[in-house]
Structure formats: structure tokens, C-alpha cells
Design a protein around this nucleic acid. Structure first.
Length: 214
DNA sequence: ATCCCGAGGG
DNA sequence: CCCTCTGGAT
């Protein structure tokens, strides 16, 4: 088993997160459900800053599946060239736009099965759309949350699905709605992959990391 | 387990 | 230079 913080401690941890940032929001720019889905798909192994820079102009001309198809793969590549994995992503976004029109009436579907049937959309991306757009109780586990969860002991797990369950089972219910963004922002700015900023960490008092490195 | 794959940080 | 970034498909 991976070391996990007790429930009473998690209450204090999340109360601290809530105190510092009462309404945490994602940092991926989008205009509607379609652009959110595309933005999240593009964000794989890329920074939100880089994705936003590319999608700003893109979404102005292509904010619907129809317009994305009209734009076409080559022109789409021109827009997202600066993002890693751009060839696969461009191909996926075009196919996905086609499928939304053919199979879902041009709308972004609201079930995990339907979402993950789309190319380039896996469990993580689906969970982000489900929770952010449809307000379903889904926990998306990205690279930050996986690292933070395991390093601190807040929501540990050998794989992403185990971490998802750790959040659902152990994070106090009243905090689950914002758990995703609290953890992600914490991982992005404080509990960074390299040289975490433990000196300014608001939850350092309860973190298991010092024990692990001792 | 491996490939995809550019930009930014340290 | 090496590592990391809101992963997914094979």
C-alpha cells in the first residue's frame, strides 16, 4: 500500500486550500463545450500557456465542429505547430469533429463512453469535460495530480484510476467539486516536479514527502 | 513499453 | 544540456 493521509488530516489540508483559493478555476481558455474539448485534447503533454497561445486565434475562426472541418487539417496544423505532438492532435481534432457531426448531432456528448469513443479523447480528457462542463462528479487525474497525490499522501495510487478512487473515497465530499483544480494548481506552482517549493507550501505541515526523503 | 514532439524552465 | 508539460493509441 502507498502511504495515505488520514481523513481528519485531509479535512485540514483542503480547508487550507479553500482558504487560499475559494473558487479555483482551470486555466485553459475556451468559448463553449466544443472548444473546451479541443483545448483539453490539445493540452496533452503541453503547457496551458502554450495551448492558449495557439487556440486564441484558432477558436476565433473555428469554434464549432463544422468550422473546424472547413478549416481543414493542414490549416489546423499551422495553428498548433507550436504545441507538442501536433500531427497526431490535428488528425484527431479533424476526425473528432467529423464524428461529433455524424454521431452526436454536432454536440459534445455528456457520457464518458461517448466521449472516449472520440479519437484523442481518453479517460482523463473525458473526465475534465464531464466535471467542468457537465458538472458530473468525475475526477480527472493528470500528471500534476498523480505526482502531488503520491508525493504528499493526499490521494496516492499506482495508476491514475487508483488515484481517481482515492480522491472519490477519501477527499471530504464538500471539497470534491474543487479538488481537481486545487491539486493541479498546487502541482503547477508549488509542488512542482523538480525542486518542489516546500518552503512556501501551505500544506507542508501535513505532507508525507519529508518522511519519504528522510 | 513506446511513440508522438515543440516550447519553456532550470 | 536535460526535464517537464492538465495523455492517448498501439
Amino acid at each position: 500500500m502507498v502511504a495515505q493521509l488520514p481523513y481528519v488530516t485531509l479535512q485540514k489540508v483542503f480547508a487550507r486550500f479553500a482558504e487560499a483559493e475559494p473558487e479555483p478555476k482551470g486555466e485553459l481558455e475556451h468559448l463553449n463545450a466544443f472548444t473546451l474539448l479541443v483545448a483539453v485534447a490539445l493540452s496533452a503533454q503541453a503547457t496551458d500557456v502554450g495551448v492558449n497561445k495557439a487556440t486564441r486565434a484558432l477558436f476565433q475562426i473555428a469554434d464549432t465542429p463544422e468550422k473546424m472541418l472547413a478549416l481543414g487539417e493542414e490549416a489546423l496544423i499551422d495553428h498548433i505547430k507550436t504545441i507538442g505532438l501536433f500531427r497526431n492532435k490535428a488528425k484527431n481534432v479533424i476526425k473528432l469533429s467529423r464524428l461529433l457531426i455524424d454521431n452526436f448531432g454536432g454536440e459534445v456528448p455528456s457520457s464518458r463512453a461517448a466521449l472516449t469513443s472520440l479519437p484523442g479523447v481518453g479517460r482523463k480528457t473525458a473526465n475534465v469535460v464531464l466535471s467542468m462542463w457537465f458538472h458530473h462528479p468525475a475526477q480527472a487525474v493528470d500528471t500534476h495530480i498523480f505526482r502531488v497525490g503520491n508525493r504528499t499522501g493526499i490521494c496516492p495510487g499506482r495508476d491514475e484510476i487508483t488515484v481517481e478512487r482515492a480522491i472519490e473515497d477519501n477527499v471530504p465530499v464538500e471539497y470534491q467539486r474543487h479538488a481537481h483544480h486545487w491539486l493541479i494548481l498546487h502541482g503547477r506552482y508549488i509542488c512542482t516536479a523538480r525542486s518542489p517549493k516546500c518552503g512556501i507550501c501551505p500544506i507542508a505541515d501535513w505532507c508525507l514527502y519529508p518522511e519519504k526523503t528522510a
